[in-house]
Design a protein around this nucleic acid. Structure first.
Length: 465
RNA sequence: GGCGGCAUAGCCAAGUGGUAAGGCAGGGGUCUGCAAAACCCCUAUGCCCCGGUUCAAAUCCGGUGCCGCCUCCA
C-alpha cells in the first residue's frame, strides 16, 4: 500500500506522490522562541519527526527544514520584561528548544533557519511582490494585497467575504483592505530594526516561512506542516505570498496536527495550565511523553493530565518488559532452529504495522498492533523451547518499530557487574539448598541497588528498576 | 454568523454500511518457596438523544451538545 495522508488543502486523504521519485521536501513551522516549550509545542515537533522517520523507513530521502522565529513582537516584549537583549533571549530559548526536543527523540532538521539570518531573502521576496503589484508600501510598512490574489482562502476553506467581515484594521495601520497583512513593519522608536528600501523595521510574521521555503527547498515542496491553528492566517498567507510570486503551487500536501488540551481545557496563560516540557521530563522518562503523544492520531485532539501520562507509562513498560524478557530468553535458551510459523506470524505483524502507518500515519493503530504482538510473543516466551532465530527476529522487529516511532524499546544490553553476578549465583545456591531467608536477603540487597530479580523456568533474569 | 473537528466501557482510544480492536485501572484463576513477570477468564445486548434512509447504521442524512479557528496561540 502506498502512503495516504490527509491534505488540508483538499480536505481529503490522498495517495502521497512526491515531486521526485525517492525524495521528499518537507517544511515544518517551528516555534517563536520567547519561552520554554510546552507540551503543545512538543506535539508538532514529535509527530512530524515521526512522519519524517516513517518516510525514511519507506525509502525516501527526506529533506527536512524547520524554522525558528527569532524576531517578533512577543520576543521583543519578553526581552523588555526580562531586561535582556533580544538576540540573547532568542538564542537562549533556541538552545532550550534543542535540549527539550532532543530528549523527546526529535532529530535535528537538515536546516534550522532563523529570521535574522534570512533577512536578505525576505527583503528580496517583498521587493518582488511589490514589483508584481501584489504588495504596496504605506508609511514605511508594506502590506500584501489579498484582493490581488484570487485564490486567497483556498487552504483554510474560508470565504473571503466572511473573513473580511471579521477582520479589523488596527489603529496606526494603513491597509487598503482589512484582509491585507503586513510583510514589513516600520520600527517604533527603540525597537530592534533592519535597513530596508521602505523603512528601518522588521518583517511580518508570515513572510519568513515563504522566504525560507523558497531558499532552502524551492518553489514547490512536497509537505508543509504545522499546528492546526496555523492554517489561518499563517499558512493561508504563506500560500498567497509564495504563489503570487512564483505562480506555482507552494506545497502539494499540507499537514496539521490537533491540539493538546489540559484536563479538557485549552492550555492558556490566563488559566495557568501550561505544562512545560523541561519540567515534565524531570518527573517522567521523556520516552513516555513521546509514547503518550503517539498513542493518539496526530490530527485528533489529545487530552493531557498526569493520570493519562501514567497510563501511557504502564503501557510502554509492558512493551519494554517484553523486550527484556526476550533478551533474557535468548541468552538462556538453546537454539531450536527455524520456526516457520513464528517467522510468518511476525511478517504479518510487520505488514500490519506498515498498513497502519500508511493510513495517514496512524500511530494509534500501529501501537495497538505492537501490543497485540507483545501478547502473542509473551505466549511464545512461556513455551518450554524457543528458537534463537525467532527471538532475534522479534528484537529486530522492535528495533525497526522503535526507529520509526522514535522510541527506543530495546535497552542497551548491559554486562552484569561482577558483583551482581556473584550475588545472583550465591542466591541461586541458597535457593537450591532451600535457604530462602538468605536468598531473600540477597534479593533485598540487590533491590536496594535498583536490580529487580525475576525467577523463571529458564533461570533468574534481572532488570534495572 | 462562516469554516472545521469531536461525542464509543471506570479512564484513554480504534473502528466510518455487515453486527463493538487495543491499552490503563478493576475482579477471578494458573504458575511461584515467596515475589515479580506472564498467561487464561470476566467487565458496553450496545457506540450522546431523537427522527430518517437501508435487507443491514456506532458508521450515511437531519437534529442536539461540546470544542477549535475566523485576534502574530503548536
Amino acid at each position: 500500500m502506498a502512503i495516504h495522508m490527509y491534505n488540508t488543502l483538499t480536505r481529503r486523504k490522498e495517495v502521497f506522490t512526491p515531486l521526485e521519485e525517492n525524495r521528499v521536501k518537507m517544511y515544518v513551522c517551528g516555534p517563536t522562541v520567547y519561552n520554554y516549550i510546552h507540551i503543545g509545542n512538543a506535539r508538532p515537533a514529535v509527530v512530524f519527526d515521526m512522519v519524517r522517520r516513517y518516510l525514511e523507513y519507506k525509502g525516501y530521502d527526506v529533506e527536512y527544514v524547520s524554522n525558528f522565529t527569532d524576531v517578533d513582537d512577543k520576543i521583543i516584549r519578553a526581552a523588555q520584561d526580562a531586561g535582556e537583549d533580544v538576540f540573547q533571549l532568542a538564542e537562549r530559548f533556541i538552545e532550550k528548544y534543542h535540549e527539550d526536543t532532543e530528549a523527546l527523540g526529535v532529530r535535528e532538521a537538515d536546516a534550522h533557519p532563523r529570521v535574522t539570518n534570512t533577512m536578505d531573502e525576505i527583503i528580496e521576496f517583498i521587493e518582488a511582490l511589490i514589483e508584481k503589484d501584489y504588495a504596496y508600501e504605506a508609511g514605511g510598512d508594506v502590506y500584501f494585497h489579498t484582493k490581488a490574489f484570487p485564490d486567497y482562502g483556498k487552504l483554510s476553506g474560508q470565504a473571503v467575504d466572511e473573513l473580511r467581515s471579521g477582520a479589523r484594521i488596527e489603529v496606526g495601520e494603513q491597509k487598503k483592505d482589512p484582509l491585507d497583512f503586513a510583510l514589513w513593519k516600520k520600527a517604533k522608536d527603540k525597537e530592534i530594526k533592519w535597513e530596508s528600501p521602505w523603512s528601518e523595521g522588521r518583517p511580518g510574521w508570515h513572510i519568513e516561512c515563504s522566504a525560507m521555503v523558497k531558499k532552502y527547498l524551492g518553489d514547490t515542496i512536497d509537505i508543509h506542516a504545522g499546528g492546526q491553528d496555523l492554517t489561518f492566517p499563517h499558512h493561508e498567507n504563506e500560500v498567497a505570498q509564495s504563489e503570487a510570486l512564483t505562480g506555482k503551487q507552494m506545497a502539494n500536501y499540507w499537514l496539521h496536527n490537533g491540539y493538546i488540551q489540559i484536563d479538557n481545557e485549552k492550555m492558556s496563560k490566563s488559566l495557568g495550565n501550561f505544562v512545560l516540557v523541561n519540567e515534565l521530563i524531570e518527573q517522567h522518562d521523556p520516552k513516555v511523553v513521546r509514547f503518550f503523544i503517539l498513542q493518539a492520531h496526530y490530527r485528533h485532539p489529545l487530552n493531557f493530565n498526569q493520570e493519562l501520562l501514567e497510563s501511557a507509562a504502564s503501557g510502554l513498560g509492558r512493551i519494554e518488559t517484553f523486550i527484556q524478557n526476550v533478551q533474557h530468553r535468548r541468552k538462556e535458551s538453546a537454539n531450536l532452529g527455524e520456526s516457520e510459523v513464528w517467522l510468518n506470524r511476525m511478517e504479518k505483524y510487520k505488514k500490519r504495522f506498515i498498513d497502519d502507518m500508511d493510513d495517514d500515519f496512524h500511530t494509534a493503530n500501529a501501537i495497538t498492533t505492537m501490543f497485540e504482538f507483545v501478547k502473542e510473543g509473551n505466549r511464545y516466551l512461556d513455551e518450554a523451547n524457543t528458537s534463537t532465530n525467532v527471538l532475534e527476529a522479534m528484537l529486530q522487529l522492535f528495533e525497526e518499530w522503535g526507529r520509526v516511532l522514535g522510541v527506543a524499546f530495546i535497552p542497551e544490553e548491559e554486562l552484569l557487574d561482577d558483583e551482581v553476578d556473584t550475588l545472583i549465583q550465591q542466591r541461586k545456591d541458597a535457593r537450591e539448598n532451600r535457604q530462602f531467608q538468605k536468598a531473600d536477603e540477597i534479593r533485598d540487597q540487590l533491590t536496594e541497588k535498583g536490580i529487580i530479580l525475576e525467577d523463571t523456568a529458564q533461570g533468574t533474569r534481572w532488570k534495572r528498576g
